[in-house]
């Protein structure tokens, strides 16, 4: 199975609704290292509209991943506000944050982070199972997604039987399965060769265009930055530049 020829079934473009999906206001995050505090984010203000294909770029330690974790309700801010679909994450309990991640957010990780005991099919199915979606519905949805990412025939392989590119495709299918409003991808191409990376970027861009899903990347990869419709440059925990492409 090639990583470079994903089959995307639907070819129509979904128009962005231009609703604000992510609202960030004066966001600060400090980590304690020994006696001292290290500020990873130093006051970030940001709005991301539904359907955007946005990349956070910047040197290591600039706060890209921290910002992504804040948006994904994986971490709590030291100061400031993060709202997803108008709901402030700071006011949510751990259970509500888990529910938000389950229902609204999809994650794609640099090191794929597939569950090793599950097959490709079951990994993609996992989010739907956790949501309690009926089996027939799950099956149809997962097979459609795996076919869309070009892995229909490898559905019953375990992660250790798949290449890095194939594993990342499964991770994309998993992130897509719950039809989230937002997919957060933390350096998704960092562990892949450039050809595989390019094909995955193309795949995500297509899914963004066809299904209207908002993608936010943290990346160093010039290919991702090139494909992104909005590029936000972070330096020392602050937004240094915010460029939108037409």
């Amino acid at each position: 199975m090639s990583d470079s020829h994903p089959q995307v079934s639907e070819q129509h473009e979904v128009t962005s609704t231009h609703e604000t999906i992510v609202h960030i206001q004066d966001l600060k995050k400090a980590y304690t290292q020994g006696q001292s505090k290290v500020w990873a984010l130093r006051g970030v203000d940001l709005e991301i509209k539904a359907g955007e294909f946005t990349a956070f770029m910047g040197p290591s330690g600039s706060g890209k991943t921290t910002l992504l974790n804040m948006i994904g309700a994986l971490d709590r801010p030291s100061e400031g506000i993060v709202k997803i679909n108008g709901r402030s994450l700071g006011e949510m309990s751990d259970t509500e944050r888990a529910e938000l991640r389950r229902n609204k957010v999809g994650f794609i990780f640099q090191s794929y982070n597939l569950l090793p005991v599950l097959t490709a099919y079951e990994n993609a199915e996992f989010v739907l199972m956790v949501r309690g979606v009926p089996e027939a519905e799950r099956k149809a949805k997962v097979m459609e997604l795996l076919t869309a990412v070009g892995l229909g025939e490898l559905a019953h392989r375990r992660p250790n039987e798949l290449s890095g590119g194939q594993q990342q495709r499964v991770a994309i299918a998993r992130a897509m399965a719950g039809e989230p409003a937002l997919i957060l991808a933390d350096e998704p191409t960092a562990n892949l060769d450039s050809q595989t990376g390019a094909s995955l970027i193309a795949l995500m861009r297509k899914l963004n265009q066809e299904r209207g899903i908002t993608f936010i990347f943290s990346t160093h990869d010039p290919q991702v930055i090139k494909a992104a419709k909005r590029v936000i440059r972070l330096v020392d925990g602050q937004i240094a530049a915010d460029e939108s492409k037409t």
Binding site: R102, F107, V130
Partner: peptide, 14 residues
């Protein structure tokens, strides 16, 4: 732990 972290990130409750 990381395996558990991923499951939590995917929305499995603690």
């Amino acid at each position: 732990q990381r395996y558990f972290g991923v499951m939590m990130a995917l929305g499995l409750s603690p």
